[in-house]
Structure formats: structure tokens, C-alpha cells
Design a binder for these strands. Structure first.
Lengths: 250, 250
DNA sequence: CGCGGCGTTGAACACGGTCAATTCTTGTGG
DNA sequence: CCACAAGAATTGACCGTGTTCAACGCCGCG
């Protein structure tokens, strides 16, 4: 690894949420591959609304989110759109080994990403079982996340889905920290419309659900993008499913 | 590989839907590992209703479906249940490398499976990059399937979800066969209640949706478990989303 | 023959989607 | 700094869809 490469990466990671994970990923690689891995990545800043991977194309790039928020989006023939999942810092996206994508990747906010061409990335995975193992674990996590969404969307009522979303955000926020008794402050970076598309509902219904949770004393809404979860237990209750409880040591 | 092992496996695969895939998986392995892989599997027949992997436990087994139908099921606190996904012949289940499972695996019909202890399976994947690659590809497929469900469940109307389900079943049935013009006969092995839990709706709504599709001339219902898809194009239309169209060469 | 599981049908009601109007916020230019 | 415009969120009213509850028909089985 050249000094130049080290600098590119360390400056890219500077102060980013994705820093820790990226470091762990790199450390798990054999020394000689670390340099190779670093050498193929390039940093980019994309504005909100930018499309990183088009639907139904063989994606030629693999990406790694440093900062910001991306979404996997599917447009329906009737003009509606559906958000299949979110990509947050430290998430990988792109379709290594996996053909064309059935949805597109779009930036919901201005986003910092590392990208690299698919070919050398795949080649590196093929050559390095360690790298492939890391990638496999990453895919397994994505699979869990996707199944979790299946559960959330299967739950009938909208309030339950909203509660579930908030729970997931909470979990993401506290990230293994010990039992959070105090209110958890959430900084939502999604517009109401986007949340609606994510939960398969309308902005109007969302608004009502949020209000209901607030009336029930479960959350406090400061601005549409800033709210506090007052009672995690009640929130879990409101979600109606037994998701994620074990992730907080209540 | 001993002659005995060959016989165990070949008799297990005899006439099974999973035969082709299993053979392909084995062929991709280096010779010396084929025997090892075969040696750890054991065949079992489980009755409908049997639970193969309990929720929230570290699953000690990996499984491979030979025949029948399994489901990933999550029980909700309010007594309702939700089916997250189905496992059909040639599907792998269990949680290699992946900790405890958030749902349980239950047999919906009498099912034939191959099972093996998790430890040696993982060990084999670690030792053989080829095996790991196969596993990775399998997980990637599961991920696609899970995301597909996310889309299906996100679509508002029940008829659309039902149509989507039928489409998926059709695709599964014709499996790469060339353009099916004639009616496609579907043999549904799911009870109405199970379909309801899978689609996040009620049996009553299901019944009405099926009837509507029949009234529209899209399907013909012979018995609740036996129906013909008369017009694949219309069915796709009714599904409302652009899923899977490219999978049939219409 | 009667019982029980399963699927369907019908009616009443609740939930959520849709449309329209209003408020709040944000960003722009005077 | 204020006025104004555009976008976003909320609120309210209405209506379609789906859930719920109940009753009925259909088999398969004891």
C-alpha cells in the first residue's frame, strides 16, 4: 500500500460514521490484499436525487456508503414508487456475482460514497477467501434486514409499521450501547413521502400515526425530522411484533 | 467417497425436484470434498406441523429441502402468525455463520429433508472457497427473493399481492421453460390461512380476490388447491408491479 | 350419520387512501 | 430584515377496501 492510498482512504473515513466498520473490514484482510483493495476505490460525492445504479442494468460498480442516505427504489407501472430498503453509512451496495438489479439505487440526501468497478472487486473476492467471507457475512446481514422488513410490512396496521420503523432507527442509533433509559433522540433524514413509500402507505396516514404515538405518550415530535422516543417498552408494544426486543437489554 | 455414501445420496435424490440442483452443487466441488460433504448429511422425513428450527435458538442444523414445503414463521404477541417466506425443494435453510434465527422453520406439508450439523458444514465452507462461493450465491438468491417479497407486500391492494404470488408460483413452475402459451396449471400446497399469513391478509379477502381474478378471466379455479393461469399477461398486469416479467419470454 | 376442519359468502364497521384546503418551513429576492 | 413563493407537513371530509364476525356449504373421516 502506498502512502498516497493510505491518505485517500484515511481522509475519506475521517470523522465518518462508516469509519469503524471499514477499519475492521480492512484489518481482516491479509496485508498484501489491503493495498489492492484500497487501490481500486474512488471517492465521490453525489447530490440528493442522483441515481447511482439504474434499474435493470448490470451494475458496473460496487459502492460503500460513507455518509448520507441511499434507497433501493422500484417504480411501479402506475406511477407510484416503492422503497425496498435503505442504505446507510457502512453499507455495501451493487451486485457482485448477481446479475442485473431489479431496482435502482438513488440518493435521498447528499451522500459520500466509495465506489469501485465490479470486475476487480469480484476478482479480489475470488482470490481472497477472507474477503469473500466478509462479503458473505455482509450479505447475510442484508438478508436478515430484508426479512425483517417482510415482517414489518406484513403487519396490518400502519401504526405498527411506524412503530417498527422507529424501533429499527433506535436500534441503529444506540448500536449495542447499554440499556437506554433516557429518551432516545432520533434525527430522521427521510421526508414523509419517502417514509410512506418505505412503509407502503401515504404521508397522510403517516402523519396520523405519528400523532397517535405522540398522544399515547410514546414519542415526542419536535419537528418532522426530530423526535424523541420516550418509552421504548411501549414503542415495542405498539409495534405489535416481537422484533428486536432482545437487541436492547431492557 | 464410499460406495455407501453414494447410495445414500443418490437414493435420496431419486426422482426429487431437488435432484438437478444438488447434482450441480456437488459437481462444482473439488473431488476430495464431495465425499466429505456427502458424508455429513442425513436424510429425514418430517410430518406436517413439525418444527425443524425453533425461534430464537442457535440452530444446530443446516437443512436442504428435497420434497415438500417448509415455511419461516414468526408468531406475534397478539396470537397472530406471520409467514416470512417459503422453502421449496432445493432450498437451503439454517443459519451458517449467522447466529440465532428470529423465526422458526416449520413444515407445512410432510417434507423430505437432508440435514447436517452446522459445525462441520461451516468448517467445510471455511476450508473450501468453492463451497463458500456456492453458498454465497445461494444467499444472494435468497436476498433477491426476500426483496421481491418486500415489493409484493408493499403493494397496496390484496388482489395485486395475490396476483404476484401466482406469478411467482408460475415462474417457479415453468422454471426457464420457453414461453408458456397454454394455461399453466398450479398445484398450490398451501392452505388458505397460510396464504393469508404469507400475504398479510385474511382468508376471506383472499377468497374474494381469487374470485375476482376468476371473474376477470385471468385464472380458473378448479379446487382451492388446483387452479389454471389462463392469461399470464393479464396476471402480470393485475399484479401491478413490473416484477418478473423478463423471466418469461412473452 | 354426524362431527370438525376448511373454504366461501354476507353484512357491518373500522381503517386507510384520496382529494382539497390550511399551516408551517424554507429559500429567494427585494 | 421582511415579503413572498414553493415545498412539505398537517388537518379534515369522504369514500373505497379490507377486516371482522357470523352463518352456511362442502368434504373427509370416525
Amino acid at each position: 500500500m502506498t502512502e498516497h492510498q493510505r491518505q485517500v482512504i484515511s481522509s475519506a473515513l475521517e470523522g465518518r460514521a462508516a469509519n469503524g466498520k471499514m477499519q475492521r473490514l480492512l484489518d481482516a484482510l491479509p496485508d498484501d490484499l489491503q493495498g489492492e483493495m484500497l487501490g481500486i476505490w474512488e471517492r465521490a460525492t453525489v447530490p440528493a436525487g442522483h441515481i447511482l445504479i439504474e434499474e435493470n442494468t448490470e451494475a458496473e460498480n460496487i459502492g460503500f456508503v460513507l455518509d448520507g442516505l441511499l434507497a433501493m427504489i422500484k417504480d411501479l407501472p402506475d406511477g407510484r414508487r416503492h422503497i425496498i430498503g435503505l442504505l446507510t453509512p457502512a453499507d455495501l451496495f451493487g451486485r457482485a456475482f448477481n446479475g442485473k438489479s431489479g431496482y435502482r439505487i438513488e440518493a435521498l440526501t447528499e451522500t459520500e460514497v466509495l465506489t469501485c468497478p465490479r470486475e476487480p472487486f469480484e476478482a479480489l473476492l475470488v482470490r481472497s477467501p477472507e474477503a469473500e467471507r466478509l462479503f458473505l457475512l455482509n450479505v447475510l446481514d442484508e438478508l436478515d434486514a430484508a426479512r425483517e422488513w417482510v415482517m414489518v410490512l406484513g403487519s396490518g396496521k400502519v401504526v405498527q409499521r411506524v412503530a417498527s420503523l422507529l424501533l429499527i432507527l433506535c436500534r441503529h442509533k444506540v448500536q449495542g450501547a447499554i440499556a437506554p433509559r433516557a429518551p432516545i433522540n432520533l434525527n430522521i433524514k427521510l421526508k414523509r413521502v419517502d417514509i410512506a413509500h418505505l412503509l407502503g402507505t401515504s404521508p397522510e396516514s403517516l402523519s396520523r400515526s405519528f400523532k397517535q404515538l405522540e398522544r399515547d405518550g410514546i414519542i415526542a415530535i419536535n419537528t418532522p425530522y426530530d423526535m424523541d422516543v420516550l418509552d421504548l417498552g411501549e414503542l415495542t408494544e405498539a409495534a405489535g411484533n416481537a422484533l428486536l426486543i432482545e437487541d436492547f437489554d431492557l
